[in-house]
Amino acid sequence: MPEIRVDGMAVNAAEGVTVAIALLSAGRNRFRTSLSGEPRAPLCGMGVCMECRVTVDGQPHALACQVVVREGMEVAT
């Protein structure tokens, strides 16, 4: 079970899942804040809608539904 950090908090993720699955499984509903301040979370689940964008290890605009978790990964929403 890789442990990742989401906004500084430790989250345990299942092996081999995407960041999106890890966040949703942990009950996280805000992947990004929209331009008008709304919380947003995955819509399409397949890399099209861009709603699940998070910052992974300092790189902004990573698609949470496409990136697989790695031990020690830093995710910022």
């Binding site: 299942a14 081999g16 899942v17 995407t18 999106a20 699955i21 949703l24 499984s25 509903n29 805000r30 992947f31 929209s34 709304e38 919380p39 947003r40 979370a41 995955p42 819509l43 399409c44 689940g45 397949m46 809608c49 539904c65």
Partner: peptide, 19 residues
């Protein structure tokens, strides 16, 4: 736009990937 609204295929894809 609320979190928790998914595409039908999208939610299935997420569930298949371990959600």
């Amino acid at each position: 736009t609320l979190p928790g609204v998914f595409g039908a295929g999208g939610l299935q894809a997420l569930a298949k990937s371990g959600l």
